[in-house]
Nucleic acid binder design. Structure first.
Length: 858
RNA sequence: GCCCCGGUGGUGAAAUGGUAGACACGCCUGACUCAAAAUCAGGUGCUGAGAGGCGUGCUGGUUCGAGUCCGGCCCGGGGCACCA
């Protein structure tokens, strides 16, 4: 059998190199202050049972960065672990009777094996799982330290309550206002819960966004909007016939003379008080409270209100009385839970005013409008203009009017300027079992008391049952019974656990010293490795996870744990992996491998032969069955093929469409590179031999090789992985077309193949190793430096310049690089096509952009 | 509802305001083969016989020149604080 008939044995090759990297400890990271460090991190997975294509994409991206930086001489830290607490484990326990701990640990074991088959360059010695006491003991300590530092407090807050299951529901478990399992109408309930003072860092979290110059702009904008700093005023209104007052927050004090009503949140204390003597109002508030706690639901609901009958007295105009409404769109969490409405200049207020027949008085006149006739129709006017109908504010622009109104509010003692934040403190209590126990003991005499540090960790008991609804920790027979650490009397443990965002807010730092039992972080290791140089994960985490981590890092710094403020210096957000959807005649979703193409065209069911309808491409999800199992793809085509496809077609930020054709194409490329290598291997001069004299074709190929080396590095530096792959494919095509004859040809061919192997190695590490070995190298790619381009081979001496007439392309001309503009202009004007297009007219203007374009304007 | 992002050939996509469609998939034609697969060679935005014309979701603007910048809209996606 000739070598050209040899098949690339994927399984054998991939296993062989994975074992070899393992044997060499290639990816074990150690602190080495003599080398520049580079910390690459992909968002760790929730151990749901099997890896999905989203994981494959995320980890393929991370591995390219890790291997590339490694080859470029960085001391790379690239760890992996498990975000192992969470609701799905409890759902599995309820639905299938498996203990969350068992379910989670088995899932981790299965997924670890799947990840290992991908050939990722992880330092597996640093693996962690957040559900183990060795991990969560440290966050219990952190919580107690935050408590000491004044960053923790307790307050009442609303939860979704399922009255049938007697359980708190997550927002995703509330569907159309009903519990997902019970179907019962959900109620809001107040519970006493623990909060972290993220708002103490609001200013800093906002300002520091500016320093995160390697984050996508859109993520920074989203965080900025989420934090939501707004300048305005607190303003007190007297209530007619009552001794008390109502405090509102407004960002538009300039529109005070256009006020039509006041509105308070259904959860405002005043609303509660009034409801006591007003059954209709009580029912309205109850209706609002049936909406659940989700802001999306509240905001999307029809805007409704109810007049309380109370009148508020306008603070600037004596005798002016305004109605006070309870309105479902006013959030108790924002500002003071009360607003004034100016319908003319706020769309939501306008809709409300039209609905309840309230007056609409414009007070800001757009430029050019006539004050005598200007009216508000269906659209509120929120732009700039000149104040009118506004007493002492008349004639001012909006910015000045705001300042003047605020001055008046302050001098008259009606209120004061204030900065309000949309950001709310982080409620971390969860009434769940599968999470980290909150290290607090409740004593009737002493109140909430921290668990003494010597008693940490508070371990999650594993002998629990899920037979009864509610939190198993709460009805465990003995676990919660303890003596009060202060007074020794019988007391109860806190049965709430932490929000699982708690664990993911510091795991990145734990990787620096994952085996230290005594402390969360070895300070020297954390100082060396932190911050994460490149963090990679889904855009869905743009706000919450990333903001909590930024806050947590600051809180840890304040408590002396760490030296950095920002955890992630660089961020890459990847798009989703999508697939077409299929339905059978009955409308049931079908898996892609149940569907085949019919000979007559169209799609049919593989078994039944019945027609299948094709739906649009959507994010892969179990519920729609449009999933492809990575394990199956890796077993069939190998990890390199799967990785290449993930990287080659779409840019990382964009959604990726998974197709059979795409994976086939990647597979063919793997074989093509392999064949190219083995056919040539025996004919080439030995590695490292001196360059012979080169002919024209060889010189051309050599230039292309060097250009590719330069371009790929540039593409990888900017995470343009798809372009890097395209360039390597171009080089591959050139190598395939090249017919070597002279000694120099073979030398250049070797150089080209070696470059191809090294350049593709971050994407397809196994194939690259195999090619490299075939080319006669004994030191593996993993220990070989990244190739460098010879810059003298990158410059061209001539360029193709486009010639336009009135912006339309009419010709292209070949000219020496950086040639004189006059030469470019004259050559352009001499072109037949240009002369024709000018149809005898004289050029009015000629725009010459050196080395690019000549545009003749006639 | 609010915030953010995206929309370019049959498909995934390239393109510092400067030749739209690099690279690939698919398809078509040919070579090899008894045949198929694989492989190799050529073609492939739409339209037109051709010269040419038209083309980056729609619409208006800025510019010598717009996929790229600005305004308005349509469609799709992410997030909205207890999914992770």
């Amino acid at each position: 059998m000739s070598r050209t008939d040899e098949r690339y044995n994927v399984k054998e090759t991939e296993t062989k190199w994975q074992q070899e990297w393992d044997r060499r400890d290639s990816f074990v990271a150690t602190v080495d202050s003599s080398r520049p460090k580079y910390y690459v991190l992909e968002m760790f997975p929730y151990p749901s049972g099997r890896i999905h294509m989203g994981h494959v994409r995320n980890y393929a991206l991370g591995d390219v960065v890790a291997r590339y930086k490694r080859a470029r001489g960085f001391n790379v830290l690239h760890p992996m672990g498990w975000d192992a607490f969470g609701l799905p484990a409890e759902n599995a326990a309820i639905e299938r009777g498996v203990h969350p701990a068992k379910w989670t640990r088995e899932n981790i074991a299965a997924m670890r094996e799947q990840l290992k088959s991908m050939g990722l360059s992880y330092d597996w010695g640093r693996e962690l799982a957040t559900c183990e006491p060795e991990y969560y003991r440290h966050e219990q300590k952190m919580f107690l330290d935050f408590l000491k530092a004044g960053l923790v407090y307790r307050k009442e807050s609303w939860v979704n309550w399922d009255p049938v299951e007697n359980t708190v529901l997550a927002n995703e478990q509330v569907i159309d206002g009903r519990g997902w399992r019970s179907g019962a109408l959900v109620e809001k309930r107040l519970l006493s819960q623990w909060f972290l003072k993220i708002t103490a860092f609001a200013d800093e979290l906002l300002d520091s966004l500016k320093t995160l110059d390697r984050w996508p702009d859109r993520v920074r904008i989203m965080q900025e909007n989420w934090i939501g700093r707004s300048e305005g005023a607190r303003l007190t209104w007297n209530l007619k016939g009552r001794g008390d007052q109502l405090e509102i927050f407004t960002t538009r004090p300039d529109t005070l003379f256009g006020a039509a009503f006041l509105a308070i949140s259904p959860n405002h204390p005043l609303a509660g008080e009034l409801a006591a003597g007003n059954p209709a109002l009580a029912e309205f508030i109850a209706e609002c409270n049936r909406m659940g706690t989700s802001e999306a639901v509240v905001e999307a609901a029809e805007k409704k209100g109810m007049d309380t009958g109370i009148k508020a007295l306008h603070p600037l105009v004596p005798g002016w009385e305004l109605p006070v409404y309870v309105a479902n769109f006013v959030l108790m969490e924002y500002g003071s839970g009360a607003i004034f409405g100016c319908p003319a200049h706020d769309q939501r207020d306008l809709d409300f005013a039209r609905k309840y027949n309230l007056s609409v008085k414009p007070v800001v006149l757009p430029e050019g409008a006539d004050p005598a006739t200007f009216q508000i129709g269906d659209e509120a006017y929120s732009g700039d203009g000149t104040l009118f109908n506004s007493g002492f504010l008349d004639g001012l622009d909006v910015v000045t009017a705001k300042a003047r109104a605020n001055d008046r509010i302050e001098t008259d003692g009606l209120g004061e300027r204030t900065v309000n934040w949309r950001l709310r403190d982080w409620g971390v209590s969860r009434q769940r079992y599968w999470g980290c126990p909150i290290p607090i003991i409740h004593c009737d005499s002493c109140g909430p008391v921290p668990v003494p540090e010597a008693d940490l960790p508070v371990r999650l008991p594993e002998d629990v049952s899920f037979d009864k609804p509610g939190n198993p920790l709460a009805h465990h027979p003995t676990w919660k019974d303890v003596a009060c650490p202060c007074c020794g009397k019988p007391a109860r443990r806190e049965t709430d656990t932490f929000d699982t965002f708690f664990e993911s807010s510091w795991y990145f730092a734990r990787y620096c010293s994952p085996t230290r039992d005594d402390v969360a972080f070895d300070r020297a290791a954390a100082d060396y490795w932190m911050a994460v140089d490149q963090y990679i994960g889904g855009i869905e985490h743009a706000v919450l996870h990333l903001l909590y981590s930024r806050f947590f890092t600051r809180a840890l710094k304040a408590c002396g744990y760490l030296g950095v403020s920002e955890p992630f210096a660089g961020l890459l957000t990847q798009g989703m992996v999508c697939h077409e959807t299929y339905k059978d005649e009955a409308g049931a979703w079908l898996y892609p491998d149940e569907v085949i193409k019919a000979e007559a065209g169209g799609l049919i069911h593989a078994q039944t032969g019945k027609p299948v309808s094709l739906g649009r491409s959507e994010k892969m999800s179990k519920s729609k069955r449009n999933v492809v199992d990575p394990a199956h793809i890796i077993a069939t085509y190998g990890a390199d093929t799967a990785r290449l496809f993930m990287l080659s077609d779409s840019p990382p930020e964009r959604d990726l469409e998974w197709t059979e054709a795409g994976i086939d194409g990647a597979w063919r490329y793997v074989n093509r590179l392999w064949r190219l290598t083995i056919i040539a291997a025996d004919t080439l001069p030995p590695p490292g031999s001196v360059m012979p004299e080169l002919g024209d074709a060889a010189t051309k190929l050599r230039r292309m090789t060097h250009k590719t080396i330069a371009a790929v590095a540039e593409d990888l530096d900017r995470f343009h992985f798809n372009k890097a792959v395209a360039r390597i494919r171009e080089l591959t095509n050139a190598l395939g077309d090249f017919k070597p004859a002279a000694a120099g040809d073979y030398w250049v061919l070797r150089q080209g193949l070696e470059a191809a192997a090294l350049l593709i190695s971050p994407m397809m590490p196994h194939l690259a190793e195999e090619m490299w070995a075939e080319l006669g190298h004994s030191v593996p790619v993993v220990d070989t430096a990244w190739p460098l381009a010879d810059s003298s081979l990158l410059v061209e001496d001539s360029v193709t310049i486009a010639v336009q007439v009135n912006g339309k392309l009419r010709a292209t001309i070949e000219l020496p690089k950086d040639c004189d503009a006059t030469l470019a202009e004259q050559t352009a004007l001499a072109q037949d096509a240009v002369i024709t297009a000018m149809s005898g007219k004289a050029p009015r203007k000629v725009v010459v952009v050196p080395n690019r374009i000549v545009n003749v304007v006639v």
